[in-house]
Design a protein around this nucleic acid. Structure first.
Lengths: 232, 232
DNA sequence: GTCAACAGAATTGTTGACAATTCGGCCCGG
DNA sequence: CCGGGCCGAATTGTCAACAATTCTGTTGAC
């Protein structure tokens, strides 16, 4: 029980939302949200001393948190030059989504269907939270619920390494699709997609689930393509 | 050109074996080899101060190197309890290999075949180095050549994210298959497999390459299964 | 006017000392 | 003889100061 593959995605997917023991985790989570919700834009610079002052903490803690963010690909460190928010160009995003689709289809192929009642309940609960937070305009919580849905769904493939890889790539592309949460129409569509996925899980419709998950990624990918054409 | 997916596997796959500028890279590489070549065994503890003394460097540098190793899954850090070499149990290894196979098949499906002359030459050169170092008994260099072969091969899929994911999982399982280098028969077999792969690349035999790569992973997986039965 | 070299500022990298935590043994009451 | 709780050693976590590097704006020669 030593090397849990989940350890690759340490505090993020930590099932224990306990008292946020370590300060570096708090900084890590805060910065992670800032990036994922667009409060920090791609290519924006992250200066250690500023962050240390903002979080009332030593620079060492900030460095550790930034290393953690580097690990999951949300920021990038250039030696002696500091840390910037990652910025994937459109072609990289296409490649990233290609990998995500491959991994997701592999996961779906490995799920045992129809899904257990407890899994269905869990997903239903998460999706309800999603809708509620959306109605209240709590974007932070919406993003968290969205992440939880995907994490739970693909975690059900039974292979922790595969689940970790999916989550890892999901987080990277979250840089891109995160903004969609702010668009009501897209968010509603997302919620409906999730419900349809749950239905597929209940009925054991593996092929349908696969298609659904692939289609689910399309809107944000289309948005990227569009802005790429508009602003070369 | 900011966020290169290769950055996920920073110094390891760095194509520039330049002057080892940063001290933490030197420590990182040394420890990585120790783990991969079995000089450090699974579950073995890594004490920061000991390493700092051994490498004649500050504890901070050791910490940074250990974090780097954590990132690629070779060691694991338990908060306030230190770092130990990762230890995957047999079922986890099966899962790991399953993901590797999925990723490798996806990569092979995306390669454009027949391969370019420069790629074939590069792989041939690497495999020759492999044989030469093996004959001389330089296991460090053999492991490095082996890694280079796989990195180059799957790097040819054209999707840096996919290549990075493959490399990432390859390194994790290197904890397991690394020992095979020391067994002459297995090492020879490995060399022959590599040649066959190059032939498939040259002829454009995609299906053959896929099967070959999957079979290539089997011996070490079998070894794991065997030791698992012997020593439950 | 353009470009190279050069200071000075801003920022990151590293060190050593100190604080906090975990782990093992020891004592002691039951 | 055994289990709970204290104590101390070993180890990790954090801080504040210092060193090294990169960046920016300016100067001066051509």
């Amino acid at each position: 029980m030593s090397a849990q593959p989940t350890a690759v995605m340490p505090s993020t997917s930590a099932a224990t939302p306990r008292a946020e023991a370590r300060p570096q985790d708090r900084v890590f989570q805060a910065l992670r949200r800032d990036v994922l919700l667009g409060r920090l834009r791609p290519r924006e610079r992250l200066v250690e001393e500023e962050l240390a002052a903002r979080f009332a903490v030593g620079r060492y803690v900030v460095r550790a948190a930034l290393d953690e963010l580097t690990r999951i690909g949300l920021v990038e460190r250039r030696p002696n030059r500091g840390v910037v928010v990652s910025d994937y160009d459109p072609s990289q995003i296409e490649q990233l989504y290609e990998v995500r689709e491959t991994l997701q289809r592999a996961a779906i192929a490995r799920m045992l269907l129809p899904a257990s009642r407890s899994l269905l309940d869990e997903l239903t609960t998460i999706n309800r939270t999603y809708a509620e937070c959306l109605a209240r305009g709590e974007l932070d919580a919406v993003a968290e619920a969205n992440a939880a849905f995907h994490r739970t769904l693909f975690g059900a493939c039974g292979n922790p390494f595969l689940a970790a890889a999916i989550e890892q790539h999901w987080e990277k592309s979250a840089l891109v699709h995160g903004y969609a949460i702010g668009v009501p129409a897209l968010a509603a569509r997302s919620h409906a997609d999730h419900e349809a996925m749950i239905a597929c899980l209940a009925e054991g419709d593996r092929a349908g689930l696969g298609e659904l998950c692939s289609r689910h990624m399309q809107p944000s990918l289309e948005a990227v393509r569009k802005t790429a054409r508009t602003r070369p």
